[in-house]
Simulated scan of single mutants.
Amino acid sequence: MTMRTRGAGTRSGWARRLRLAAVATALALSAAACGGSAGEGGSGDEVVQLQMASFLSPSTAQGQAISWWIDELEKRTQGRVKVETFWDASLLGAQEVRDGVRDGRVELGNVSYAYTPSDFPLTSIVEVPFLGDNIGAQMEALNSLYANDEAFRSEWENQGLKVLSFIGVPPALTGAKERVTTVDWYRGKTVRASGYFVKALEAVGGNPAAIPVPETYEAMRTGTVQAYGGLILDVITPLSLHEVGGHIHDPGLGHYANSTWVISTETWNSLSPELQKIINELNAEFPDQLIKAAERTEDEACTKILESGGSASIFSPEQTQIWREAIGDTPMKEWVEKARKAGVADPEAMYAQFKNTYDAAKTGKYADYKSGIARCAARSQ
C-alpha cells in the first residue's frame, strides 16, 4: 500500500493523523526489508510518502543539497519513505512555506525567515555584518546555537517547525557596468538593495532602491539603478544580470541572511527513534553537501560572468574598514534590542556563543573553505 497525500489545503485532520501514523511505522518496515526481499513478510510494498515545498529551483546549490537529503532518506530507508517534491514555488510561494509546513499542507520545506522577520528576531542574528564569508562556519554556528540554546530553539519549535539544518548563505555581492573598487563609488548612486544592505548603502551615501529581484534586470538595462546589491553569485547568472552588470564585487560585508531546512514538529514527533536517528545522520552530513553544491553552481556562474566580459573582485581590507566605520555598531545594537524584547536576558552572551563557534569552525573544520567570489576573483586577475 502507498500512503499518498491529497492536494495542499484540502487534507483533513484525519488524513494527516493517518499519514503520521504511517510515518511512525517506516523504520520497522525498513528493518523488515533488511531481513529479506521487498515482498517478504507481506509488508514489502508499504510506502510512506511525505511532501516537500520549496520556492527554489532544484538546480540551485540549496536545491541540490535538499535533493541529496531526500534521495538519501529514500535510500537509507530502503525506499520505505518517499518524498514528493514541489520546486519553484509550484505549490507554496516563498512567503507561504513556513505556514504550509506548520499547518500540515506539507511535511518538509525550506524556509526563509526574512519573509516574516518579526517572528524570527533571534535568527536575524545573521544580519549583523562583518562576521565572515564561510558558509560552513555559518551553518556550524547556527546549528550549534539551535542545539544548545533553548530560547533560540524555541523560536522555531514554538511555531511548529523542527530545524533539520540551517543553510548557509554566501556574502552579499554587488554588480555594476564598471569595475568598483572603492566605497566612494556608491556615493550618490542608486542601487537595488534589500534587507540590511539598505542601511549599509545609506551609511556611505548611496541611494537604495527597493526593486524586486525579478525586475532588477530591466532596472539595470534602463539605467533606473546603477548597480544591484544583496545577491549571491549563483543567483546572478540565472537572472542574466551579468549581461547588464557583469562587474561583480564583494564589498566585504559578509553574510546577510540564511535559509532553513525544516520538518513539521508534529511529523518529527511521530517518528520512531530509529528513523529520527537516520534523519539526524543526514542532517550532520547536509552542510558538506551544500558546500559541494555551492562550489559547482558558483564556478559555473563565474565562468559565464568572465566569458561575457565581466569581472570579479573583492574590496581591499582598507576599503571594507571604511564601510565598517561608516556603519558602526548600529546593526548589533538593533539585534540586541530585538533579542531582549524576545525575552533573552543576555543577548550579548548569545552572540558571543554564536561568533565563537563560527570562528572555531572557520579556523578548524572549515579552514579549507574558499568563497565562490574569492575563487572567481582569482580567475578574474
Rank of each mutant, 00 (worst) to 15 (best):
A219M: 11
D149P: 03
D234L: 00
E127F: 01
E150F: 09
A147L: 11
E155Y: 08
L241Y: 05
E178Q: 15
Y186F: 15
A141L: 07
S194D: 07
W185T: 03
A227H: 04
K162G: 02
A209H: 04
A176Q: 08
G245T: 10
Y228E: 08
V163F: 08
E150Y: 10
F130A: 02
K189H: 11
F166K: 00
H242A: 01
E150S: 15
P171G: 13
E157I: 10
S112M: 12
A141E: 11
K177G: 13
V191H: 06
L173Q: 04
I236R: 00
P121Y: 00
R187F: 08
A219V: 13
T181V: 14
A200L: 14
I236S: 01
P171A: 13
G175F: 06
E150T: 15
E150M: 11
H242Y: 12
S124C: 00
V213W: 06
V198I: 15
T182D: 15
A200T: 08
L231C: 00
T174V: 15
P171V: 11
H242G: 02
S154C: 06
A210F: 14
N134Y: 12
S154Q: 14
R179A: 15
D149G: 01
V225Y: 04
T190G: 00
A172I: 02
E155W: 05
H242K: 07
A176C: 05
S118Y: 00
P212L: 07
I125T: 05
F166N: 07
G175I: 04
E127P: 02
V126D: 02
V180A: 07
L131K: 07
L173V: 00
V204H: 03
P212D: 12
A227F: 05
Y146P: 05
D133S: 13
M220S: 01
I211N: 03
T222A: 10
A172R: 11
A141N: 04
I211Q: 11
D133L: 02
V126H: 04
K162T: 14
P238K: 07
G245Q: 08
Y217T: 05
T237R: 04
E157W: 03
T123L: 09
L161F: 05
L131W: 02
A114S: 14
P117C: 03
G175H: 01
R221E: 15
E202D: 08
I125M: 12
A176D: 06
Q159C: 04
Y228G: 05
A219K: 12
Y146F: 13
V213P: 01
V198W: 10
T181W: 07
M220F: 10
S154F: 09
F130R: 11
P214E: 02
W185D: 07
G246M: 08
A209I: 02
I135V: 15
Y217P: 06
G175N: 03
F152A: 09
V128K: 01
G223I: 06
V235F: 11
A137V: 11
R221T: 07
I135D: 12
G230N: 10
A203E: 11
T224H: 04
N134G: 13
A137M: 09
I211P: 08
N110A: 10
W156A: 12
R192I: 07
A172F: 09
G229Y: 00
E218F: 14
W156L: 12
L173E: 05
L231A: 02
H242C: 07
T123N: 14
L201Y: 04
D184W: 10
D234K: 09
A227V: 01
E243I: 07
